[in-house]
Design a protein around this nucleic acid. Structure first.
Length: 903
DNA sequence: GGCCCGACTTGGCGGTACTTAT
DNA sequence: ATAAGTACCGCCAAGTCGGGCC
């Protein structure tokens, strides 16, 4: 289709940011369109600026103090960066500048435009400030607003908010639990309808009450809050307890479930009642965003607490006119598609925008991929039955892959060894001396490996540097692509080297040989007019060359472990193509904010629907919304046995009277999810019903799968899918917590607030990490130090008492005479020591709290960076305290956000 | 409607570069 | 200067979701 809709926006890359020699300015094609998801969201121009001004020099120096964060101070950007300071860094200026449209901060402009090396520039490039303002038109949905406002606003609150006390009370029943953990979300929704609601068949719209907020933006917050007696809220929400310890320990015991084979269950999936879906569809349409325009723009959380938060400035946000929003979803492509499908009338609107069809780029130039070096045989002989064995280089290569893993726990996994043996023995051939893995002794090879490692470690820094440069030189040409005239970084241009497949969890294929990929395995995708990359391995050639501009990959090959899957080479996260889609993702999540209340009301009502499918959809949606569960696609038998919402087994959920549910299952990456939550009675009852007459290994939601679920969601909001809830709940929680909890204080304190919010989100999303090996050692070392300091304190106290009486201090442990200090000096010392102790204790607590929580994942994938950037601007926190270099690059598109931006 | 293919996002981990503490 | 500790980053596995086909 038309590539661009008339309204396109252009990114203005003007200037400087080039990363490189290449020049360029690009207008970005796909971006604009206005799409309106059904609501017409319009974005006016969005733009990103990519500027490069430095984000660097942060003007603020943080007082350090805080642990980790503080240290980041270093952030001073890469040295090379120009002295400019980014707007963000200097918040003050930024504020103003940001708003003003095209103004860019002076500093920035001053930047030298070009001389940085490409790389460095690239790195820096991000923030140029173009202030673009985007405006979004209000979402308008037609809605018939109902006045019933019954459902409290709580609905719109972030989960965290709903949980009641955010941080604190945890149930610490568990040894380690951190407060936050304890409070996992509890959903609260009031169930209004009785179970049998006659209304079932009525159009949703009619059924839900949409809150009418007509016009009352302000009132909402207040009122809503009030509606429920606090205590009740608490109860509802607060109940979740997550067994943290379990989590940790857990890893070990992975899934208890008996794995029933899904096969048996297949029968379970009965054809569903056809009418149901249909009906729903139609009905759904009506669920529209709750509109109250004005209010809607205000972040819910804000509305709620407006009065409360000190941050009040936010209130200004209200300015509807200024809404910052950004660009619309450019994703038009997708949306368009969606729209087509959807029966909404609205969809029609979209279509026009679809202008750019699927096209992702117009010109694409790159150099292909780089291959790992060929195998260099080391000649070290392994032993078989005690005797050295000769191996061909190919056999030795694979033997070495195995030998290297001697000390890992894969060695204790029979499946791993079995798979390895199957593949390796094939290489050895039938007549090889080596007949069994049991008699193999790989120690000599392992030792050789350790030596090599040691050698490498011992290299001087010059040598290391030289090596690094050499590598860089070789790779340089592969690192960049030129997309529509703009130089962009390529993500994974290195072809994966051969190795033994390491799956996560109990993967049936672990240990299999992942063979070497050669050029003839690789398909290249490149612009029609671009030169075809030269094949780096002499005498070989690419498998195929494509010129498909509807996709973003530069190359792909079939996964050697699972030939029906592919490995792609994409642009890096910092590329504008990725940035654009990232932004669209967050815009979609923000759109959900306008619909969430009705969606919640809808599923709440359906908890008691007569139709089983409908009830299952309702309950599943509830779990996805409240617990941030993943959709849960079906998996093959040759994959690890993990589940998501739709694939939960009966045995994964335990009903604990009167109304608690205990979840225990292995999710993505075989990470255990254990959580006990209090739910509304209808949910509790529904789950019980879904479990009856089934075995533990049967599907809990036997009528459901992700496509049905998503098809349903799509009717509630264009483009809505299960994963949008995760993004939405993560971001709204961050936005809410930041705005609620940020108090005056120094940068370090604010950073702590941020981390706390970040941690909350990580817990919601169940982002775990394994406890570091040195964790306990570190803790005991800290304890020891604290004890020592306390001893010092005690001694000082003695000295102080003596000093006050004019006596000299006692001798120290070594029997030496200490210096004679004045009481004031001693007191000062004591105070310092106390501060030190307190800090250490805090550090210890933080360390303990975070030992199983991974903060990075949510930052990278779930938290709208504009929330963070805007908060940093508002609170004068240098963005570098929160985002590292990669994130700054990845979120270049968010850097010019208005300080008043709220999710 | 189910299945499979295809494209793209999400996610934990391990190595390493960089900091901080001793 | 060295050890200890942390932050990053790359790797690549494992999800999600849409579309086309039958």
């Amino acid at each position: 289709m038309a590539v661009e809709a008339p309204s396109k926006h252009v990114y203005d890359y003007d200037d400087e940011d080039d990363d490189g020699p290449v020049v360029f300015k690009r207008s970005n094609t796909s971006s604009s369109k206005q799409n309106q998801l059904n609501s017409e969201v319009k974005k006016a121009s969005s733009q990103r600026s990519d500027g490069q001004s430095g984000r660097q020099a942060s003007s603020v120096q943080a007082p350090n103090g805080q642990n980790s964060v503080a240290r980041t101070n270093k952030s001073i950007l890469p040295s090379k960066s120009p002295p400019t300071r980014s707007p963000i860094l200097s918040p003050k200026s930024s504020n103003s500048s940001a708003k003003a449209s095209p103004v860019r901060s002076p500093v920035v402009s001053s930047k030298a435009s070009t001389s940085l090396s490409d790389q460095s520039k690239q790195a820096l490039k991000q923030n140029k400030f173009t202030a673009v303002k985007e405006e979004k038109s209000l979402i308008k949905c037609t809605d018939e607003t109902n006045s019933d406002d019954d459902d409290d606003d709580d609905d719109s609150k972030p989960l965290s908010a709903r949980l009641k006390g955010i941080s604190s009370q945890g149930n610490k029943g568990v040894s380690t639990s951190t407060p936050a953990q304890s409070q996992r979300l509890v959903p609260k929704i009031e169930v209004k309808g009785s179970a049998e609601d006659p209304d079932d068949d009525a159009p949703l719209s009619a059924r839900f009450s949409m809150k009418s907020n007509t016009g009352t933006s302000s009132s909402k917050p207040y009122g809503s809050h009030e509606k429920k007696p606090l205590p009740s809220k608490i109860q509802q929400n607060g109940s979740i307890m997550k067994d943290k310890q379990q989590k940790c320990s857990v890893l070990s015991d992975k899934r208890p479930l008996d794995k029933g084979n899904s096969s048996d269950q297949s029968y379970a999936k009965k054809p569903k009642i056809s009418d149901t879906p249909t009906t729903m569809k139609t009905k759904q349409v009506t669920v529209k965003a709750e509109k109250d325009d004005e209010d809607d723009h205000i972040p819910i959380s804000q509305r709620i607490k407006k009065s409360v938060s000190s941050v009040s400035k936010t209130s200004s946000v209200k300015q509807k006119g200024t809404k910052v929003v950004s660009s619309s979803f450019k994703k038009i492509n997708k949306s368009k598609k969606d729209m087509k499908k959807s029966k909404y009338s609205k969809s029609t609107k979209l279509s026009p925008s679809s202008g750019d069809g699927q096209k992702k780029w117009s010109t694409l130039v790159h150099n292909g991929v780089i291959f790992p070096p060929p195998y260099k045989p080391h000649g070290v002989k392994m032993l078989y039955d005690g005797q050295p064995v000769d191996l061909t280089p190919e056999q030795e290569e694979v033997a070495t892959m195995f030998a290297v893993m001697q000390e890992t726990d894969y060695m204790s996994k029979p499946q791993f060894k079995k798979n390895f043996w199957e593949d390796w023995s094939k290489l050895l051939g039938r007549n090889h001396v080596i007949k069994s893995l049991d008699k193999c002794d790989f120690t000599p090879i392992y030792e050789w490996h350790l030596q090599e490692k040691e050698k490498k470690k011992q290299m001087s820094s010059e040598e290391k540097k030289a090596l690094k440069e050499e590598k860089l030189k070789q790779e340089e040409k592969y690192m960049w692509a030129i997309v529509d005239g703009v130089k962009e970084k390529v993500g994974n241009f290195r072809v994966e080297p051969p190795g033994l497949f390491r799956g996560r969890g109990e993967h049936p294929k672990m240990g299999k040989l992942k063979r070497r990929i050669r050029p003839c395995d690789i398909t290249i995708n490149i612009g029609k007019d671009a030169p075809i990359p030269e094949c780096p391995i002499p005498g070989e050639r690419w498998k195929d060359i494509k010129h498909d501009n509807t996709v973003t990959w530069l190359a792909f090959w079939n996964d050697p472990i699972n030939p029906k899957e592919f490995k792609y080479v994409f642009l890096a996260a910092s590329s504008s193509l990725k940035g654009q889609s990232d932004k669209e993702k967050y815009e979609k999540a923000r759109l959900l904010k306008d619909y969430i209340k009705n969606i919640r009301a809808a599923y709440t009502k359906d908890f008691t629907a007569k139709d089983v499918t409908k009830r299952q959809i309702a309950v599943a949606t509830y779990l996805i919304d409240k617990l941030a569960l993943r959709a849960g696609n079906e998996k093959d038998d040759d994959e690890a046995d993990t589940v998501g919402c739709c694939t939960l087994k009966v045995g994964n959920v335990e009903c604990i009277p009167p109304n608690k549910l205990k979840f225990d299952f292995l999710g993505k990456d075989s990470i255990q999810y254990v959580n006990t939550v209090e739910v509304e009675l209808p949910v509790y009852k529904a789950i019980g019903q879904f479990q009856t007459r089934k075995s533990k290994s049967d599907d809990l939601f036997d009528e459901l799968d992700t496509s049905k679920l998503n098809a349903h969601l799509k009717e509630l909001m264009p483009g809505l899918t299960a994963k949008v809830f995760r993004t939405y709940n993560a971001s709204i929680t961050l936005d809410d917590m930041l705005n609620q909890e940020t108090k005056d204080g120094d940068v370090a304190e604010k950073v702590v607030i941020y981390q706390r919010a970040n941690k909350e989100v990580a817990i919601i999303c169940n982002h775990q990490r394994s406890i570091s090996k040195s964790h306990s050692a570190q803790m005991s070392r800290l304890t020891e130090k604290i004890t020592e300091l306390k001893g010092v304190l005690k001694e000082l106290k003695t000295d102080l008492d003596r000093a006050k009486k004019g006596k000299p201090p006692l001798k120290d442990a070594d029997g030496k005479q200490k210096r004679n200090l004045t009481p004031e000096a001693i007191e000062k010392k004591m105070a310092q020591t106390n501060v030190k102790i307190e800090k250490m204790e805090r550090d210890m607590q933080t360390k303990e709290d975070l030992k199983t929580v991974a903060l990075g994942t949510s930052k990278i994938n779930y938290l709208d960076p504009r929330i963070t950037v805007a908060w940093c601007k508002r609170h004068e926190v240098p963005i570098e305290k929160i985002f590292n270099k990669s994130l700054l690059a990845k979120f270049a598109w968010a850097m010019d956000v208005d300080p008043d931006f709220r999710f």
